[in-house]
Amino acid sequence: MKVIVIGPKGKMGKLITQVAAEREDLELTAGVGPKGRDYIGADLGTVAMVGRELGVPVTDDLESVIDNCDVIIDFSTKEMAMDVLEQAVAHGKALVCGTTGFTEEEIQKFKEAAEKIPMLYAANTSKMVNVMNKLLETVVSILKDDVDIEILEMHDQWKKDVPSGTSREMGEIMARAMGKEIGDIAVYGREKGESPRVPGTIGYHSLRAGNIPSSHTVFFGGMGERLEITHHSYNWECFARGACDCAAYLADKPAGFYTIQDVLGFKKADS
């Protein structure tokens, strides 16, 4: 699989490049950065701090290199991601997108693109997070309305979207297991004064501080007992490895909307 990495100097793009450079099943053909960056024109290995030159360029013009790839991996910004999506569709290239913060209308554009290209969208590419998602689905399917559900997510001070894409996905999975829509039952934080808990809702709480890596805990509160399921990432390497697994998975896949659950071989929950 010939791969283009979007945003190779970003925290995720850099790690994805480093991981992909060590894999025998992936061949890096270019990196694409935002226009005007001082590293445009440099070697991808140098920009991503791989430890050696890779002999491929970093450009700010995706269209100039897109025909020499099989799949694009994009963990950039939501603004850049929409441009990348448009180019991927126009050139018929597979796309792995892990960027978050999209509106429902923007997510719909990714689903529409899947009618023409292999499209894999993943709010979180960690294997363990997606195992956690299966556990959440199982717990809610068994306990249903016997518990109150609260989600606590923590990220660094630079995280823009609130709540995180991962915690939004967790809520969606649990809501489906309850036979509900997350938009109808989500509660975001609680303000000063009286704010009684409404049964059947899912509460979201977001912390942003320092350089805290991604951390998610789901609390299931029952009477006289409590269950907690937590995932901590020590750094972003787990997400980079998962992103590369997603890219390799799309080899020879037809057009369609794929998720990391497909990559891991999980049976999908009923929609």
Rank of each mutant, 00 (worst) to 15 (best):
K2F: 09
V5F: 02
G13W: 06
A20L: 13
D25R: 12
L28A: 00
A30M: 11
G51P: 01
R52A: 14
V56D: 04
V58M: 11
V58T: 11
D61P: 04
D61K: 12
S64E: 14
N68L: 02
K78E: 10
E79H: 07
E79G: 11
D83R: 10
V84I: 13
E86G: 10
V89W: 01
V96Y: 01
V96K: 09
G101H: 06
E105N: 07
I107T: 09
M119T: 08
M119Y: 09
Y121S: 09
A122Y: 11
M128F: 15
N130I: 01
N133E: 10
E137R: 07
T138L: 13
D148L: 06
Q157S: 13
D161M: 09
P163F: 09
R168N: 03
A177R: 04
M178V: 08
Y188N: 10
R190S: 10
G200N: 04
H205P: 00
N211P: 00
S214P: 05
T217S: 12
V218Y: 03
G222Y: 15
M223G: 10
Y234F: 10
E237I: 15
E237A: 09
A240C: 07
R241M: 11
A243Y: 04
C246S: 07
F257H: 13
Y258K: 08
I260T: 06
